[in-house]
Amino acid sequence: MTWVQANRDYVLDMLLQHVRLSVPAILISVLVAVLLGRIAWRWPRAGTVVLGTASLLYSVPALPLLIVIPVLLGIPLRSGLTLVVALAVYGTALLAGTAADAFRSVDERVREAAEAMGYSRAGLFWRVDLPLAVPVLLSGVRVITVSTVSLVTIGALVGIPSLGNLLTDGFQRDIRAEIVTGVVATMLLAVALDGLLVATGRLVTPWRGNVATGVTT
């Protein structure tokens, strides 16, 4: 605890960096994965290829990816953007399949009735398909949130600061308290973001909670 007190500003700074890297990566993953999932749902044949490619990307080892991305995009190796892109690739790879499942989980009877009532194509997506896909989608977003937060730490190996620095620095200088702080802070951040997602999920799917306690007369 004394180590934490002595290095409070440093830990908070690294925590902030960690958030700055993980949250954009998660948001990009969700956007791209929903897009790919929608394509896969709409055109199943093309979807098999898209989803297959996506899950293949997940098997690319992290360190080479962190070297390849700056080369491909022409950005500095130590830029936070490099890590955000890499994490977004993994996040998308992990989430795209779930996003496709989420759209498949929408009751076809509901979609048809909505279409027959006169929802436009865009209206059907935003006001029927997407809200009804949220429960399944959210389960996938929770997984990539936790995995992204923990993956951010590897950025420390190529000099992109985050809570991972507490791990590399702690190992090099053999400061056990620093390592423990790094691990615990990373886990706490993951748990906090997960909690935020669960709360948001409840907020945007009020009809589900009500069903469980609902009166059915």
Binding site: D107, R109, V110, A113, M117, L132, T205
Partner: peptide, 12 residues
């Protein structure tokens, strides 16, 4: 349009 059972918007 009156759909078959299950055609209401469950989230509304």
């Amino acid at each position: 349009y009156v759909p078959q059972a299950g055609g209401l918007l469950p989230h509304r």
